[in-house]
């Protein structure tokens, strides 16, 4: 690729970032008004949160189970299987819970946000709202943004709980570790603020970022069916990248 072409791409990327930033400000500006349509937020929490429960719970259970199994094999080498519960809890609470839930959330809820809003754009529903003097930013976009922020931490807690259940199933019921040791070591090491809630805050930030990207992609998509299809793909790809990058930044500098 030659230099001018690369500069173009860089400029495009920067313009995109700028557009997303402006979009975020207009969402934040629309949030107060969107509280008047709080029912819409409630509905969106249902769609992005409750409807993601099945995938979140299943994945949480399996992540916990496989983590337990893998760590058991690793820890037996050091005679440290007593630490299994602790290690599972710490890695789930601090990293795996928020990140895996965020990736699943982007795939399950982010894509549907993008497709819905993109379709509303393509079928003039957003224009129709504008014509009925209803601001789509506060009626369509802001409720989804709020729902993302609200639903993600709750989903992470459920994911973590199911993960620990899975780890317990494998570690205690199957591999025969002592139940008391499993929980006892965990409770003596894991802290509420620095471990559990740390991950919960992070996940709220992930929820905001995913909802921002998803609604932006939907809102600005070309009003055609392939426009919506591309936008949906972009939502997953950009969400994954941004979530992992943000995770690193937040972990390194804030936690």
């Amino acid at each position: 690729m030659n230099a001018p072409r690369r500069n173009m791409m860089l400029a495009d990327a920067l313009a995109q970032v700028g557009a997303v930033g402006l979009f975020m400000f207009s969402i934040l500006a629309a949030v107060p008004k969107s509280l008047r349509h709080y029912r819409e937020t409630v509905r969106q929490v249902w769609f992005v949160g409750a409807m993601s429960l099945v995938i979140i719970m299943t994945c949480g259970l399996f992540v916990g189970m496989v983590l337990s199994l893998q760590l058991y094999y690793v820890l037996t080498n050091f005679g440290g299987t007593a630490a299994l519960g602790t290690v599972v809890a710490l890695s789930m609470f601090r990293e795996l819970g928020p990140v895996v839930t965020a990736l699943l959330f982007a795939g399950r809820a982010g894509t549907s946000m993008t497709a819905e809003i993109g379709l509303m754009r393509a079928t003039d529903q957003l224009s129709a709202m504008e014509m009925m003097a209803v601001d789509p930013m506060s009626y369509v976009v802001a409720p989804r943004f709020l729902a993302g922020i609200l639903a993600m931490p709750l989903l992470v807690c459920i994911f973590n709980a199911l993960g620990l259940l899975g780890a317990h199933l494998v570690g205690v019921s199957w591999l025969g570790l002592d139940n008391g040791t499993f929980w006892g070591n965990m409770t003596s090491t894991v802290e509420v603020w620095s471990d559990l809630l740390n991950g919960v805050w992070k996940s709220a930030a992930f929820g905001a970022v995913i909802a921002l990207i998803a609604t932006f992609q939907g809102y600005t998509t070309p009003p055609t069916s392939e426009g919506v299809a591309y936008a949906t793909t972009r939502t997953v790809v950009s969400s994954a990248i941004v979530v992992l990058a943000l995770d690193f930044v937040m972990t390194a500098f804030l936690m």
Binding site: A50, I158, M186
Partner: peptide
């Protein structure tokens, strides 16, 4: 929708309470 959302939020907070009280030093 409202009832379902309420249940979901309750479930989430129940999970949080469970994790906080059973798996951390609070226990």
């Amino acid at each position: 929708f409202q009832v379902g959302t309420g249940l979901f939020i309750l479930l989430g907070f129940a999970a949080l309470t469970y994790l906080a009280t059973q798996t951390t030093s609070i226990a």
